[in-house]
Measured scan of single mutants.
Amino acid sequence: SEHYTFDGEEQAIRFMRDMEAKNLKYELQIHNGKYIIQVD
């Protein structure tokens, strides 16, 4: 699995939509205002 970190919500949402379009599962965590997305 890989981790991707985003500072902004818009970037994170765009990335998650992209993952959904590719049928990839992901998990979102928010730490200290950063959006951390783990992709299986």
Rank of each mutant, 00 (worst) to 15 (best):
K22D: 04
A21V: 07
F15K: 02
T5S: 10
I13H: 10
F15L: 03
E27F: 13
K22F: 07
D40I: 15
T5H: 09
R14Y: 06
N32D: 12
F6T: 01
D18K: 07
H31G: 04
G33H: 05
H3D: 06
G8A: 14
I30F: 09
G8W: 13
N23W: 04
I13R: 10
N23I: 02
M19S: 03
A12G: 01
L28K: 02
L28G: 01
R17H: 12
E27L: 12
V39P: 03
Y35A: 00
Q29V: 13
I36D: 03
V39Y: 04
Y4H: 08
I13Y: 11
M19N: 04
M16W: 03
D40M: 15
Q38D: 06
T5P: 02
M19F: 04
A21W: 08
E20A: 09
Q38H: 14
S1A: 12
E27T: 15
M16Q: 02
K25F: 08
R17F: 08
G8V: 14
E2S: 13
G33Y: 03
Q38K: 15
N32S: 06
Y4P: 02
H3M: 13
N32P: 02
F15Y: 03
D18S: 07
Y26Q: 01
M16V: 05
R14D: 13
Q29C: 11
E20Q: 07
G33V: 01
Y26K: 00
E27W: 12
Q11D: 15
E2V: 15
Q38C: 12
D18Y: 12
R14G: 08
D18H: 08
R17D: 09
Y35C: 02
I37M: 02
K22V: 06
D40T: 14
S1Q: 12
T5Q: 09
T5N: 04
L28W: 09
E20W: 05
H31A: 11
D7V: 07
D40S: 13
Y35S: 00
D18M: 12
E20F: 05
M19I: 11
H31M: 12
Y26W: 07
G33L: 02
I37K: 00
I36T: 07
L24R: 10
E27A: 11
S1N: 11
K22S: 08
Y35P: 01
N32E: 11
K22T: 05
A21K: 11
I30V: 11
N32C: 09
Q11P: 07
I30A: 03
Y4E: 02
F15V: 04
L24M: 11
M19D: 01
N23M: 08
F6P: 01
Q29F: 14
N23Y: 06
D40R: 11
M19Y: 03
T5G: 03
N23L: 06
I37N: 00
F6Q: 00
I13S: 07
A21T: 08
H31W: 10
Y35L: 03
I13V: 10
R14L: 12
T5M: 11
I30K: 05
H31K: 13
D40H: 15
T5L: 09
D7Y: 10
Y35R: 00
A21D: 10
F6V: 02
G8C: 13
I37S: 00
E27N: 12
F6R: 00
Q11K: 06
A12M: 04
I37R: 00
A12R: 01
E20R: 04
Y4A: 03
R17W: 09
Y35T: 01
D7T: 08
V39E: 01
R17L: 13
D18W: 13
R17G: 06
I13F: 10
K22G: 05
R14A: 15
V39H: 03
K22W: 07
I36L: 08
K34P: 00
R14H: 10
E27R: 12
E20P: 01
D18E: 14
E10K: 05
Y26G: 04
A12L: 05
Y35D: 00
L28H: 02
Y26T: 09
K34V: 12
D7R: 03
I13Q: 11
Q38A: 12
D18Q: 10
H31C: 11
Q11C: 07
S1H: 12
D7L: 08
M19R: 02
H3K: 13
G8H: 15
L24C: 08
N23G: 15
Q29M: 13
E27S: 14
L24I: 14
D40A: 12
Y26F: 11
E20L: 06
I30M: 08
L24F: 09
Q29S: 12
K34W: 08
Q29K: 13
D40V: 14
F6K: 00
Y4V: 06
E20V: 05
M19Q: 05
E20T: 05
Q29R: 13
I30R: 05
S1R: 13
R14M: 12
D40E: 13
N23H: 10
H31T: 12
I13E: 10
L24H: 07
E10P: 05
L24N: 04
I13T: 09
K22E: 06
K34G: 03
Y4M: 04
Q29W: 13
H3L: 14
R17Y: 09
M16A: 05
Q11W: 06
E10N: 04
E9Q: 08
I37D: 00
K22I: 08
E27D: 10
Q11F: 06
Q38E: 08
R14F: 06
N23R: 06
H31E: 11
H31I: 15
S1C: 10
D40Q: 14
Y35K: 00
K34F: 10
Y4K: 03
F15R: 00
F15H: 02
N32H: 08
E10C: 12
I36K: 04
N23E: 07
F15Q: 02
H3N: 10
I37T: 00
I37A: 02
